[in-house]
């Protein structure tokens, strides 16, 4: 008996949760060849490391993802132009573009303060077909640190993908549904490679008179801060504990300690 499309998608997503994140491209290729019918759903559900491009007109860096892609071109959040240029690339309508411009300015400052030199991009698209006045957006941050070379011993890469849906609630409120994924890789030369991703969700209803951009910003700031702590726990504390529970280095590690750590790692 052949599996349904839903069963295949579930199996493909389960596989991607088990196999090493560093080779996600290879596995995606394999999965798409095995089950081309799930391609669209699969790609929409898998976060891949963010690529960086440069807006040639304004000489500013921006991030590439599925949300600013049209065919083989990507739209810059700064100039609103597609590179390479396309005649019919989708662009947000005027009111959303206005919000997008405001967001890119503010989130660039947010990025400067939390990431100290990272790259940010904010993209919006409307979702009027779902509900009048609703829209969705993605807020992306990327930061690289250190390098592996003759002199460099450590390298860290942080890619954050925040996808937010805003739905009007009554006359003066909106509900914000946020799904955030942080992909983090940590490499120590000749010793270890630690990489992966965590995903968390959050919902908040806030008054719209404060403005959508500050509202989205506050929700992102809260969830991202919590995730930063989870990542620190899961990547470094947790990993050390697990290694010590396999090979006992003299530290006592009952299951309870591990359960405690897990509890702490939850947002």
């Amino acid at each position: 008996m052949t599996a349904t499309e839903d069963e295949k998608l579930a199996a493909a997503l389960d596989l991607l949760k088990r196999l090493p994140p560093s080779r996600v491209y290879t596995y995606l290729e394999c999965l798409l060849e095995l089950a081309p019918e799930i391609a669209e759903d699969l790609l929409a559900n898998v976060d891949q490391p963010l690529q960086v491009a440069k807006d040639k007109k304004l000489s500013k860096q921006y991030l590439l993802c599925d949300y600013n892609r049209d065919g083989d071109s990507y739209r810059s959040p700064w100039s609103n132009e597609y590179e390479p240029a396309t005649d019919d690339g989708v662009k947000p309508k005027e009111s959303l573009r206005k919000l997008e411009v405001e967001g890119n300015e503010v989130f660039q400052q947010y990025c400067g303060q939390y990431y100290d030199g990272g790259i940010s991009s904010f993209y919006l698209w409307d979702q009027e077909e779902e509900e009048p006045g609703s829209f969705a957006g993605s807020l992306l941050f990327k930061k690289d640190c250190g390098k592996i070379s003759k002199a460099g011993m450590e390298k860290g890469v942080w890619d954050a993908v925040h996808v937010v849906e805003a739905l009007p609630k009554g006359k003066d409120q909106a509900e914000y549904k946020l799904t955030s994924t942080v992909m983090l890789s940590a490499t120590k030369k000749d010793l270890f490679k630690l990489e992966g991703n965590l995903t968390r969700q959050m919902e908040r209803t806030l008054p719209t008179k404060q403005g959508h951009v500050p509202n989205i910003g506050m929700v992102v700031e809260e969830l991202e801060g919590g995730m930063r702590n989870s990542l620190q726990q899961v990547y470094f504390g947790w990993c050390e504990q697990v290694v010590s529970s396999i090979r006992n280095s003299g530290m006592k590690l009952p299951e309870k300690v591990i359960e405690d750590l897990k509890a702490k790692a939850k947002v």
């Binding site: 640190c145 450590e154 860290g156 940590a186 010793l191 801060g225 990993c239 280095s249």
Partner: peptide, 25 residues
């Protein structure tokens, strides 16, 4: 194993902190 543990702690204290701050300055 000791090297592993030390390096993990060190990474958390240095490079990880530079990636994203807990709070702005």
């Amino acid at each position: 194993q000791e090297d592993l543990q030390e390096s993990l702690r060190e990474f958390a204290e240095t490079t990880f902190k530079k990636l994203r701050r807990q709070l702005p300055l």
